[in-house]
Amino acid sequence: MAERKTIAFRVDESQKQKWKKYAENNPEYDSLSHLVRLAVVHEMSDRYGRAGSGGGVDSGKIGELVTAVQKVEGRLEEVEKNVEDATEAAYSTAEPAAEIPPKGEILSALPHGKNNAMTADAIAVELGIDNAETALMLAYELERLEGETSAVGRIVESEGEAAESWAEAMAGGGATVTKRYYREE
């Protein structure tokens, strides 16, 4: 093994401490000496690039990078156009949203009193709704009205037995739970 020679040079104590701390905080360096040796090797290999040479990157590599970025930009524009076209197609061919009757009409269609309560489907028929999506929206609206106003009441039944709530009906083990709505008298 060749004999290693020592090279000594002088730096301020503060500079030495900065380099030493850097070497200690970065696991790729074994010591301050290792950091200095690698820095010299990198400088000599032109890894950092010579001063004023643009960091050692040749113009051919820059041209390749510019071409690659332009290709990516072109693909991105194509994807954006496809998304725009798909969005436009989705909105132009979509069926109009289900519209339920106004609140006043719904309230007028509700039977008066608990004894006359009806399911949401039966109320939909009373209102002339023959679209399943609109009937479902009506059921949601009846739930909302029952929660918001004292004008609408609801009966929950599990296999014909009255329950105080949906949870109680489900806890009773009934396979069929029915909600019926009515207008409070």
Score class of each variant (00 low, 15 high):
E3S: 12
R4G: 04
I7H: 05
V11N: 01
S14C: 03
Q15C: 03
K16Y: 08
K18R: 13
K20A: 13
K20Q: 05
Y22A: 13
A23T: 01
A23F: 01
P27S: 08
S31I: 04
S33D: 11
D46M: 11
D46V: 02
G55M: 02
S59G: 03
V66L: 11
T67E: 15
V69F: 11
K71T: 13
G74T: 05
R75I: 12
V79Q: 10
E80Y: 02
E80C: 06
V83C: 07
E84F: 06
A86Y: 04
A97C: 06
I100G: 08
P102Y: 08
K103Y: 07
E105G: 07
P111S: 00
A117K: 00
A117M: 02
M118S: 12
M118E: 15
M118L: 10
D121I: 12
A122E: 15
L127I: 10
L127W: 01
D130I: 04
A139F: 11
E141I: 08
E143A: 12
R144Y: 08
R144F: 13
E146C: 14
E146P: 04
S150F: 08
G153N: 06
S158L: 10
E159P: 02
E164N: 03
E168T: 11
A171Y: 15
A171L: 12
G174E: 12
E184P: 10
